[in-house]
Design a protein around this nucleic acid. Sequence first.
DNA 1: ATCTGTGATATGTGATCACAGTAGACGTTG
DNA 2: CAACGTCTACTGTGATCACATATCACAGAT
Lengths: 245, 245
Amino acid sequence: MSGPVFGRIDQTTMREGVYAQLHDAFTRGQFAPGDTLNLRGLAERLGTSMTPVREAVRRLVAEGALIDAPSRTLRVPDFDLRQMQDLKLARIALEPLVTGRAVERMDAATLEALEGILAEDTVDGKQAGMPDLAQNYRFHFTLYRRADSPVLLPLIAGLWLRYGPYLNLIMRHAGPEIGKGNDIHMTILDAARRGDAKAAQAGIVADIERSFSLLAEASEEQAGDDRMKRRARLTASPWPEQLSR
Amino acid sequence: MSGPVFGRIDQTTMREGVYAQLHDAFTRGQFAPGDTLNLRGLAERLGTSMTPVREAVRRLVAEGALIDAPSRTLRVPDFDLRQMQDLKLARIALEPLVTGRAVERMDAATLEALEGILAEDTVDGKQAGMPDLAQNYRFHFTLYRRADSPVLLPLIAGLWLRYGPYLNLIMRHAGPEIGKGNDIHMTILDAARRGDAKAAQAGIVADIERSFSLLAEASEEQAGDDRMKRRARLTASPWPEQLSR
DNA sequence: ATCTGTGATATGTGATCACAGTAGACGTTG
DNA sequence: CAACGTCTACTGTGATCACATATCACAGAT
């Protein structure tokens, strides 16, 4: 049989679409610890019925990004030092691993992509030093993806999902100071270019520890903010702009 | 206010019940690679409507224990060498980590529990060397739980979930020979008793590598079995007895 | 005999409804 | 004025229905 070549019809469900949007919002730090969600509200904003939202939310709960709070409410977990240390431990166990593999299998296309991502920041500096969490996410995951590790990558993505709300705290607290993160990213990229797996891994660990220490600072502030934040949540919509469109 | 002390009403949903049953079936190796499931059948067997089943199944898909096969069918993933190597890598990255922590924090109660689990096998040898996968699971996770690591433990549980169908293969292939696994478990328990974290970690790695090599053997056989298995699936119910009750 | 279109059957998906339960507002009572 | 009970609004949950779509068996044409 012959004829015109067709593009594949994307066989995507609404459930996946909803999940993707929520996942995005999380990794961008658009949810803060303590935020509450409700299914009907989400469904309305997303233009679907409750069903796909339920399933997406259920998945987020299973991944630990949301929790079932008492009295049938869904909440972004509050800050928890123990849990965060555990999260750091897991990241340090897994991310250097995939980094090593990625560097060993590195190719020109990926290097170029990584350069491009880092360059965005310099050019697109209109945000005036405002850290672009999505960019950070892209850098790490284009690197990790090169490891071609179908089991480890989703695991790491799950960890980042839970880091998201903390990133929100960091962002609010540290603000522009976060910009120097790109120094570390540069170092990692250089190591990847040289094929120096060890150096790249060390860079990743440094990056993780850096965000951890920033978070430790931010968390101290949160205790004071907490009461105010909770009050504000009652009046203002906790909804991140990304999803309201 | 005073009065009699009441036990907590367990606020459990059907969704969780369904998930627990399926999770159990997986870790016991009651599902084999390639098995297919359908929501209505599950719902009927479990005595619920489709809704809770859908959500539990969706979670299993998110965890990688099931996959969405073409034409709206749910399948237990087929054996995949690359995936399995990745799984092994992840296990070796995480399980020694929690083992180390567990040994450091070891207490008498946990040691006793571990002894008890290993003793079961010797006493309850009625299965004639038939490996009790549930017992294996309990041993590892009572050990790991002692690490008190709320992030890492679910991660590891997710990995085991995906190991389940492979265990099924091992069990079918290796049969009684698997009994010597307890030697390694003994070694691990001894190390835990002495507080020797390094030795316990080495034991865990040995255990993982052992099950991996058993699996490598079994996987060769699967290629031949495959055609037969697929035919059998059409006539016989793939349903594990555990769930039919 | 082989290929092809058609209908029946069965699947997951999404929408909708009824319901149990909680929290907070409000009125009542002491 | 404070403590208590009731009532209302809202939540997630589970059941059910309608639907698009894939597979298979079969009949018809070539």
